[in-house]
Amino acid sequence: MDALGIATILTTMSIVLALILWLPISLRTRIRRTELYLSGEPQSGFTVRVTEISWAVRRVFERIYEILIGHVQTGIFNDWFALSLPYLLILLLLLVIVVTVRGGV
């Protein structure tokens, strides 16, 4: 059996076994809901800012992020296209090299 076959079998087995183990635990467990845990603060008026979830990555890659924001998020499609053109050309060049050297992909 190859690696892909093993991955398929083990994944299917994991999903099914997890379901079999989950059913009895889930059925016998009663769920009681309380207010959100906010260290005793009231829940009213609280919102989680989903947009802030990548702040650490942004802080580390700040310079790259600012360049991207400056060039990409201008609302103009051409800016995005101009930024991605060099990469597209590199990909095209790679494709031409692969096709020439190997005679096919």
């Binding site: 994991s14 076994l17 997890a18 989950w22 009663r30 769920i31 809901r33 309380t34 207010e35 845990y37």
Partner: peptide, 28 residues
């Protein structure tokens, strides 16, 4: 424990399945 106390919006049963799936995948 028969009672699972959780936050108002937490999908507790789904989280339970995810955790079991994680354990079973590691075991597999």
């Amino acid at each position: 424990v028969k009672e699972l106390v959780t936050g108002a919006y937490t999908p507790a049963r789904l989280i339970l399945y995810l955790v079991i799936l994680g354990i079973v995948a590691l075991s597999a």
